[in-house]
Nucleic acid binder design. Structure first.
Lengths: 196, 196
DNA sequence: TTGACACCACTCCATCCGTAGTACTACGTT
DNA sequence: AACGTAGTACTACGGATGGAGTGGTGTCAA
């Protein structure tokens, strides 16, 4: 079990690409070695076994999907109106869609987590934290909409990205854009309908 | 290429279970044979190659996820108010979640369609038809909400099912129930916000 | 008798894990 | 400056699995 952190990270990032391209079952030590352009056997030295590899990828993938710190900072400060909010959501969808392999890899990990309790635990923790953080940001912004609104927006945007990445001909780019707008608009306009 | 239709269907249904349990890469002729409890080599006689197997499963999976005809008939006639609509959506989410392996298999197929143009074409066609049908049903019901509302509801419910199936500890059953209610409520209450 | 299908057997091939063993580099010691 | 040591990069192989495709045999019905 080698300890060179740069090399380990490079291997994990290579694993993300392999996951997206070959699927969960295609994620082997050999494939990671090839993707990272290191000699065969290297990944074997850095991860105890495939389970360990999955778990470590699960721990890292979410960092790579999150926006960089500058964007987070802008988000925290600048969200005062609906237009700005919508703009941020478009950025989110575009950024995640752009890091194509990252999102596909996350989907593969989700499906794989069905069979790997350790991986499931890691993913559950990360994603729960992300949702709560989003609820927190929204609450701090003072914009209308409760936590349910935020979660519903999260749900819709996630599946929208799934559609876009897996079956790009279902919705046109134009439709995707309009759907993001509509989702944001409804999320912020939902104060009056929270009564059951 | 054998032509016994019952046997073919049994093999395809077995393939769905294999897909959900083992993932796309685990869908092999041998695994299908084992799952269907037929002698090894049988699947090989019914499908030209793995690609053909994927495509045929893609053509069938959606039928199995759709409600039976009785439910569809009830849906067409009986949706006059929000309560009934919400009830139907709960039924939908529960039914799809209950046919656990079917939905997971569909997710696997979506990811696999990234690498298989034929499969992608089949899935795109089926799913586009389903979305359009839902929009049509909604329009015929006379309830408030335009096609965008329907699609946004579709998006949110799909990801909700993904969360429920892949990471069941993210939301409690109670939260899932409330989110379905809220999604329906907002979808039907969105007449006033369609202006951009 | 003929044709279609179920079933079985066999060959060839590709891939992978785990690890043992070698080579290189850096650094500290004397 | 020579030497030793430790950690890491790299190579090679043992051992084993799993699967695709195909040809051949048995069986049943028209």
């Amino acid at each position: 079990m080698r300890r060179n952190p740069e090399r380990r990270q490079a291997l994990i990032d290579a694993a993300i690409e392999v996951l997206a391209r070959e699927g969960a079952r295609g994620l082997t030590f050999r494939a990671v070695d090839a993707e990272a352009a290191v000699p065969p056997g290297t990944a074997s030295n850095y991860f105890a076994n495939r389970d360990d590899l999955f778990t470590q990828v699960g721990g890292r993938i979410y960092e790579r999907l999150l926006p960089d710190e500058a964007t987070i900072a802008r988000g925290r400060e600048g969200v005062q109106d609906e237009a700005r909010y919508a703009e941020l959501m478009h950025e989110l969808v575009d950024r995640v869609s752009a890091f194509n392999s990252g999102y596909l890899a996350l989907l593969e990990l989700r499906l794989e987590s069905t069979r790997r309790p350790e991986l499931r635990a890691v993913l559950t923790k990360r994603i729960r934290e992300d949702i709560d953080a989003n609820i927190g940001y929204h609450a701090a912004s003072g914009l209308p909409g409760d936590s349910t609104s935020v979660v519903l927006l999260y749900l819709a945007l996630n599946w929208l990205i799934v559609e876009r990445l897996t079956l790009p001909d279902i919705f046109t780019e134009q439709e995707v854009h309009e759907l993001v707008d509509a989702a944001v608009r409804r999320s912020l306009a939902s104060d009056g309908v929270t009564g059951g």
